[in-house]
Each structure stands twice: as structure tokens, then as C-alpha cells.
Simulated assay, not measured.
Amino acid sequence: MTMLATLFAIATALLVGAASPGPSFLLVSHLAMTRSRKAGLMAALGMGTGGLVFALLALAGLATLITQFGWLHRLLQIAGGLYLVSMAWRLWRGASQPIEQQMQGEMPASLARTYGTACLTQISNPKTAIVYASIFAALLPFRPDQMLVLLLPGVVFLVEAGWYALVALVFSAPMPRRAYLAARKPLDRLAALVLAGLGLRLVIEGVRT
């Protein structure tokens, strides 16, 4: 398989994973609808950075350590699950606040927090690191070319950031935004329950394994 074919295969596999609904999708779409397109795009950059972290970990072989050391895997699962539960609690409380209050704070510091929150959300699930390691192990040649190794993190960033930028653009459009505002409170509560469920599942799996 040529270098371009390998990069395309890995990018396709990662895109399928990124498009699966989860905490990252919920966060980006929610920010795009409640705050602004700019906030959604900043979150997309955070998601891309989180994907870049996973790519570097996988290339360095550190993701393998997660599978070899059970206690580390459990610790990361519990920490990531608790983070998602705390995010769900903030979303549940914010559902009853006026929308104007949630849309305040478009200063750079606020956008920086948006970026940081998105990045933490992306890396809160250690299983994603294992997925990256599995994809790389399956699709990378035994001795990959140096140029391939150098290009791969950038491709990963573009796939993750590009997908979530598309999500931000779609959900910040007038029609989805109006539909969300018309049923904001129940939708926010539902999103909070989904996040809490995902977080609790991570915690329970971390405790049981």
C-alpha cells in the first residue's frame, strides 16, 4: 500500500469513528446552537487537538501501556467518566437559565476555555486511545516511512477538526438554531442525561474491571 493510500485508509477509519454520536458531538453541537458559530468552531479545534494527542500517544506506543497496565486503564476510565458526569450536571443546571446568560462571554478568554473544554472532552475516554492504536496497528506498515509518520498527526488533526467544524457550521445555521431554541430546556436535559449515562458507564466499567 502506498503512503497516500495508507493515509487515506486511516483518515477514513478515523472519520467513521468521529461521526459516531458521543460526548464530543453533543458538546460541539450544543455550543454552536447556544452560543455562536465561533464557539462551535473553537470547540472543533479543541477536538482536533485531542485527536492529535491520541495520534502522538499511539505512535509513541504509549497507548499500548493503557492495555498492559490495568490499573492505569481503570484510573483513566474513572477520571474521564467523572469529568463527563460533571459536564452533564452543568448542562442540566444551565437548561433552566435564560439563553442570553449562556450566550454571554465571547471574549478571547471564554473562547480559550471553550477550546480547553473541548480538548478535555475528546481525551476523557481512554478507549479512544486504544481505538487509535488499533487503527494504526492494522493499517500502518510494519516499518512505516518517516514521511508517513510525520504526516499522520496532521491528517488526524484535519479529520477530527474538519468533522466537528462541519458539525458546528450545520448546527449554528438559522433553522437548526431556531428548532433548538423552541425546545431548549428538554433538549438540554436530554443531552445532560446522555452525557451522564456515558460518564457513569465509564466509571462503572473502571470500577468493575
Rank of each mutant, 00 (worst) to 15 (best):
M1W: 01
M1R: 09
A9F: 11
A11F: 06
A13I: 05
A13Q: 09
A13C: 07
A19E: 12
S20T: 14
P23L: 06
S24H: 03
F25Q: 09
L27F: 03
L31E: 09
M33W: 01
M33T: 15
R37W: 15
G40I: 04
G40D: 03
A44K: 00
V53E: 00
A55F: 00
L59E: 04
L65Y: 09
I66V: 14
Q68V: 07
F69T: 14
W71Y: 13
L72A: 11
Q77S: 06
A79Q: 02
G81C: 06
L82F: 08
Y83W: 08
Y83Q: 04
V85F: 00
M87L: 12
W89E: 11
R90E: 07
Q97A: 08
Q97S: 10
P98D: 08
I99Y: 06
Q102G: 15
G105D: 13
P108Q: 01
A109I: 15
L111R: 00
A112K: 08
Y115P: 07
A118P: 04
I130M: 09
V131E: 02
P144V: 04
L148Q: 06
F157M: 02
V159F: 03
W163Q: 03
W163A: 10
Y164N: 03
Y164S: 03
L166G: 15
P176W: 05
R177A: 15
A179I: 08
R189H: 10
A196M: 08
G199C: 05
L202P: 00
V203C: 06
